[in-house]
Amino acid sequence: MNINLTLIGQSIAFIIFVWFCMKFIWPLIISALDERKTRIADGLAAAEEGQKEKARAQEHVAQAMSEAKEQAQEIIRRAERREVEMIEEAKNSARVEGERILVAAKSEIEKEANIAREALRGQVAALAVAGAAKILSREVDQSAHARMLDDLTAEL
């Protein structure tokens, strides 16, 4: 165990090793590690951004869903209302049509009755005149009683 030249040899070896490590080993690995660190940080940031994006999309979807549901409800409600309206309308128009037909029929009937009554009146008058003529053919001056007969006919 003597102190000798080994001391200096060892110092030289030490210097060379440290120099080599400093030049050819440390910077390469450290730069790789740093690069990886940045990459991981970027990746994490991107993932977080993606999560946020996803949350936003989900929110959007939920909103669209609820809107669509509301619209569907609205459409159904409108349709129901329309149905009731249509039934009402149909009922109304049917009633109106019925009344109209009824009125028309009534007036037709009345007209027919009037015509019949007129005809009947004419015929009764003619029949009465004919009867009276038969009975009074000699004494009655046709022209003298014509006015009286007309009055009679109008009175009927």
Binding site: T6, G9, Q10, F14
Partner: peptide, 12 residues
């Protein structure tokens, strides 16, 4: 275990 070696390094 050789003091030369350890002294060599600590000298550096």
């Amino acid at each position: 275990t050789d003091p030369n070696a350890t002294f060599g390094m600590s000298l550096g």
